[in-house]
Simulated assay, not measured.
Amino acid sequence: MRAVNLILALALMMVLASCGAKAPPKILTYDGPPITSIQVQKANRKMYLLSGNQVVKSFDIALGFAPVGHKEYEGDGKTPEGTYWIDRRNPNSAFHLSLGVSYPNADDRIHALANGKLPGGDIFIHGDSPWTKRQVDWTAGCIAVTDEEIEEIYAMVREGTVIQILP
């Protein structure tokens, strides 16, 4: 009887320990048309992956917690506006998977420094957002989608892809 109780207690501990465990990111493959650009429409909370002028896939997004206007300096909670490119891939992101956006550019740096501020950085498209479907903006300036969506986006988008972020 004592052995049965011990086995049951160990099984219960294993089940409870696994409840908080997060599944590792899935690195998917993609064999569709090449994604040549990304367009983000901040006002509509939409992101489009394009091949030429054809929309291949669209996503609902969450933005920085102060979504109106162009990012001006570190800590302002805004998502940048303008033309950038995907400059890095992070398979070990704190937000499931992430794709780096090349913000700040030279103009962003000049503007921030002229106002006595730092421009900030580390702007990404990333996962870990259960709020995108509810239109809650929560990031520090990034573009967030769900974990399942970033797995798909991560497979589709390559470094060097242009991203245009519109107001």
Rank of each mutant, 00 (worst) to 15 (best):
M1I: 05
R2L: 13
A3P: 02
A11R: 02
A11K: 01
M13Y: 04
V15T: 12
G20F: 14
A21T: 14
A21N: 03
K22I: 15
K22D: 10
P25D: 15
K26Y: 03
D31H: 14
G32C: 11
P34H: 09
T36C: 06
S37M: 12
V40P: 10
Q41T: 04
N44P: 00
N44C: 00
K46I: 10
Y48G: 06
L49Y: 05
L50Q: 10
S51Y: 02
S51V: 03
V55F: 01
V56N: 14
S58F: 00
F59G: 01
A62E: 11
L63H: 02
F65T: 12
A66Y: 04
E74K: 11
E74M: 08
G75Y: 01
D76G: 09
D76N: 08
P80F: 05
P80L: 07
E81F: 10
E81D: 04
E81Q: 15
E81M: 14
G82W: 12
I86G: 01
R88V: 07
R88K: 14
S93M: 07
S93V: 02
F95Y: 14
G100N: 13
V101C: 04
P104R: 05
P104K: 06
P104N: 05
P104E: 02
A106Y: 01
A106P: 01
D107C: 03
D107M: 12
R109P: 01
R109E: 12
I110P: 01
A112R: 08
K117R: 15
K117P: 00
G120R: 11
G121L: 04
G121R: 12
G121T: 11
G121S: 06
G127W: 00
G127R: 00
D128M: 09
T132P: 00
Q135E: 08
D137E: 10
T139N: 00
T139V: 00
A140P: 01
G141P: 08
C142F: 01
I143Q: 07
A144Q: 09
E148W: 02
E148K: 14
E149D: 15
E152W: 08
E152Q: 15
I153R: 04
E159R: 13
E159C: 10
E159L: 04
T161I: 01
V162I: 15
Q164S: 12
I165M: 09
